[in-house]
Write a protein that binds this DNA or RNA. Structure first.
Lengths: 337, 337
DNA sequence: CTGAAAGCGCTAACAA
DNA sequence: TTGTTAGCGCTTTCAG
């Protein structure tokens, strides 16, 4: 028995009856209005309005095979890092009449696989994934269902799924090079756990491009402002003298900035701090944060466009590598300068 | 003609054929497994696995009248304020087998109404709204479709929709009282545009509870860290001497903190800074931010539970007022103390 | 415990 | 331009 709450909804047949036309005609004014005579259409529209007709998405989906819903699997929403990308995806998708349901994975591949199944269960037509590290089950699922899937926040033209993102390793290299170019040799690297996070892994790999006389010391902690602060505290407590802090993400860099200020260490006079991402707030910290810009918004937009083209016109997405850019602001300075 | 990409998906009938049972039996192992004989069930499950069967959400929805999808309309995702609430909603909803699609409105009632229509079009069973200020069209839509809707981030037991949130005015009062209790009399109020934002309006109303000898000067700017910084710069540029900055939101308070540091004004020695929200990062700023805690996560959880109960058991949500709490940290201090 | 069959609301041939 | 009708994939009586 169909569950009904309140006054039952009007359906196509009800509208057809009220407008004294066939259901096909009603369907037409819904889908191809221009093919219906103006007067007829007017009557139908009046009937729809009066009955507060809302077409059943399910019924349409079952006929067209299209749900018009896409799914995104992201580590977390509770963090500025993905927010703007998701925001951009959602908003661009809207231009194509597509909706987005987002599922958070907490960076756990198993949870991710489970949530992916859940998304497919509710009928999403395509999936946005973060990075290229996934559970086998997810890969199998994508293969079997042949569901369009695009990877964001990462670029690897050879990956078996199209990646639309940026070169994290290169971004890491740029950040490191900036610091090295400034004469810094003893660098504290602040990063989040890389175990299930290939973006972080790549950035760290980029950091490793350092010349032999540069010594990098890693401090790992959570991908939060508090995590960054904790890592900085650890670095300070280690007693080792550092010229600079190189952060794998702006979020952590904010924490580093706060902790250094708390410790009375002047940035950039005593130590430089380098971020990576260029969050909106990076431009207004004190001092303003030098960082590497990651085109999060454009990435979201491009990913949405590619996905729309895929589900609407069956043209599979192709890899896109977006450029990153060094943003030199105030938190970095020549050593001893 | 049904659109099919790649190898066509197996359906119930295919599974039934493979397992040599009827479609009804397959449907049963899907929905009421315990009513099917163990051996039969095993055969069916094997067939489903082999065919990589994924049931059609649309077909189920059309029969049960349930899409298992809910919609959330929020101003923006690109801001820590809503992220943790949405995160909590999504995660709690998951426990009930419900999904969430989020739509951002940019704080524009018209956009909100349009997106609400879009959500209904894709078949959401319920709506989460932010605050009580909405376009008439939206109100009408909710009334006509009788779709379950709950308001979050706001509390008003008399509103025509159930509100699950906190008392913004009271939170504002608490923040103001803290500052006044510390002896501050010349207070710069930093806030975002309140035109379409009733939460902000209420908080400002709470600020107005100040005694007669307290003078409040308002500085309005965007609800971002940069906006907060800009507001602080304006306050400083005004030349007026302030004892304290009272911010309608932590996000802006962060900007204020940065701007004051940039201006070389010591917090809390020279001026106190008070936030409102208690974002995770508020506890690690330098100095740590005094603020009023808003139970964003619990609110999300409770709203999700209420909504689940509504759509699953038809019990309408009831208003819930969650307590706020003063968090005294380091950014506020007795005047001249 | 299992099967047959009638829909759910809509789309899309095909006819008229 | 409009109507008739056969499904889409699944759930759910109702029989057996």
């Amino acid at each position: 028995m169909t569950v009904r709450r309140g006054k039952k909804r009007a359906n196509l047949r009800d509208v057809a009856r009220a407008a004294e036309v066939s259901v096909a005609t009603v369907s037409r004014v819904l889908n191809t209005p221009d093919v219906v005579q103006a007067e007829t259409r007017r009557r139908v529209e009046a009937a729809m309005a009066e009955l507060h007709f809302v077409r059943s998405a399910a019924a349409r989906a079952i006929n067209t095979g299209r749900s018009k819903i896409l799914g995104a699997l992201i580590p977390t929403l509770d963090n500025a890092i993905f927010a703007s990308t998701i925001d951009a995806i959602e908003s661009r998708l809207g231009d194509f009449g597509l909706s987005l349901v987002v599922a958070t994975t907490g960076e756990d591949p198993e949870v991710e696989a489970r949530k992916a199944q859940g998304l497919l269960d509710i009928g999403v037509e395509g999936l946005f994934l973060s990075g290229i590290t996934h559970h086998d089950t997810l890969h199998a699922l994508i293969e079997h269902t042949a569901v369009p899937a695009v990877v964001i926040s990462y670029y690897d033209a050879n990956y078996h799924l199209p990646t639309i993102g940026y070169d994290n390793r290169e971004a890491g290299r740029i950040a490191l090079a900036h610091l090295v170019g400034l004469g810094h040799r003893r660098i504290a690297v602040v990063h989040n756990p890389a175990e299930h996070n290939d973006r972080t892994r790549e950035r760290l790999a980029g950091f490793e491009s350092a010349p032999a006389d540069v010594v990098l010391t890693r401090f790992e902690s959570a991908l939060t402002v508090a995590g960054g602060a904790r890592a900085a505290a650890m670095a300070l407590a280690s007693g080792a003298p550092f010229d600079a802090f190189l952060c794998a993400s702006d979020v952590q860099a904010l924490g580093v900035l706060f902790e250094l200020q708390r410790a009375g260490i002047a940035v950039p006079e005593a130590v430089s701090v380098m971020g990576l991402h260029d969050l909106p707030s990076a431009a207004v910290t004190a001092p303003r944060l030098s960082t590497v810009h990651l085109p999060a918004e454009e990435m979201g937009r491009r990913a949405a466009e590619a996905m729309a083209d895929w589900v609407e016109n069956e043209v599979p997405a192709r890899p896109i590598c977006l450029p990153t850019a060094l943003k030199i602001r105030e938190s970095t300075r020549r050593r001893g300068g």
